[in-house]
């Protein structure tokens, strides 16, 4: 993008200034504060003089090597994120492919888009009340249904079963967020240069081919955005596991956020350990993001070249476009 306004450059700084100031105060400072707490002995309800630990990494070491529950929380977070994200992105991509395919021209797609996003509006509190009631044991709608269909002789304690509990939390997350992901992906597809699609049609590509060869590669940046925001969201998963199952049964839905919350605000008030755990989660987020960036960037260059080729082709095929 070429802009000649050298004299306008200062506006770039001015326009971005509010962001920077607020970020420094409300995000940067608390993050550093939290990081420092992780190296101290700050715990207990009553504020006491806080000291740096003799071994500054003691809290981190305890958490990683000496705390089964924390490791379990990391594993749970990963598991629940996978059961939520893979179906979520697949369904969102499928719906995107359908809704942006002019040949299909799905009727009522506006209504569908509006409705599919709706689960995102519902509060975690509502979900907790609704799902606890639905899966209630020994009597509840789902149990009655299973009984009616002859699938079970005795009532099933769904929420006592670890797999079911994790699956349900994963499902709720999936159900709440696929609409949101879909809307962003559709936006991404709408931003793709139409020339590319026209070229694909000219070449006689099928809808499936067009989707995998043209749409997906052009969606890279948006996909990266979806991946990163979803990953951060996954690492922060809190409301549903906490309100719906309080991290149970037997810690099966204890995510890292629930663990950190329990450390900091319940029982023993170990701010230091909670802070250290937060920093570990942060580091994981950074590493995973870097990995994502690396994979996306690496292929980007190649894709760009490919795209240039296609553009040239398109330009040749449709000279009236210019």
């Amino acid at each position: 993008m070429r802009r000649k306004g050298v004299s306008y450059a200062k506006y770039g700084y001015i326009f971005c200034l509010p962001f920077v100031i607020i970020f420094l105060i409300f995000s940067m400072y608390p993050t550093l504060y939290t990081a420092v707490i992780g190296f101290t002995d700050m715990k207990g309800v009553i504020p006491k003089p806080v000291h740096l630990l003799d071994n500054p990494f003691q809290n981190f070491r305890d958490l990683i090597f000496n705390n089964e529950t924390f490791r379990k929380a990391l594993l749970n977070t990963l598991l629940i994120w996978i059961i939520n994200f893979i179906p979520q992105i697949l369904l969102a991509l499928l719906l995107t492919a359908w809704f942006t395919n002019n040949r299909l021209n799905i009727r009522g797609q506006g209504l569908f888009k509006v409705l599919l996003y709706m689960p995102n509006i519902i509060t975690a509190g509502t979900i907790a009340v609704l799902f606890s009631a639905l899966f209630a044991y020994p009597m509840g709608p789902v149990n009655s249904f299973f009984h009616l269909m002859g699938w079970s002789d005795a009532p099933i304690f769904f929420l006592q079963d670890k797999t079911t509990a994790r699956g349900l939390v994963g499902f709720i997350q999936f159900w709440m967020w696929y609409g949101n992901t879909m809307i962003i992906l559709i936006a991404g597809v709408m931003g793709i240069n139409p020339v590319l699609f026209e070229a694909a049609i000219m070449d006689g590509a099928t809808a499936v081919q067009t989707f995998f060869r043209v749409t997906l590669p052009s969606l890279k940046t948006i996909l990266l955005y979806v991946l990163i925001t979803s990953m951060i969201g996954g690492l922060q998963m809190f409301d549903i596991p906490q309100l719906f199952l309080q991290g149970g049964p037997d810690n099966a839905t204890l995510t890292t956020s629930v663990f950190i919350y329990n450390q900091a605000f319940r029982g023993a008030y170990m701010y230091n350990r909670a802070a250290a755990a937060s920093m570990i989660v942060f580091l994981i987020a950074v590493v995973l993001s870097l990995v994502l960036f690396y994979f996306m960037r690496d292929r980007d260059a190649a894709e760009l070249k490919k795209m240039e080729k296609m553009m040239k082709k398109a330009a040749k095929a449709a000279p009236r476009e210019v």
Binding site: R3, Y13, C16, P30, Q236, S278, V281, F282, A285
Partner: peptide
Amino acid sequence: GLVAYNWKLRQPFFTFILCVMMIPAQASAI
């Protein structure tokens, strides 16, 4: 500001925003 103006720190600032995106809320919550 990031798109319309050409300023020296523009690209670094955008990278910075991408990094900020990665900070989980819990990292700063306490």
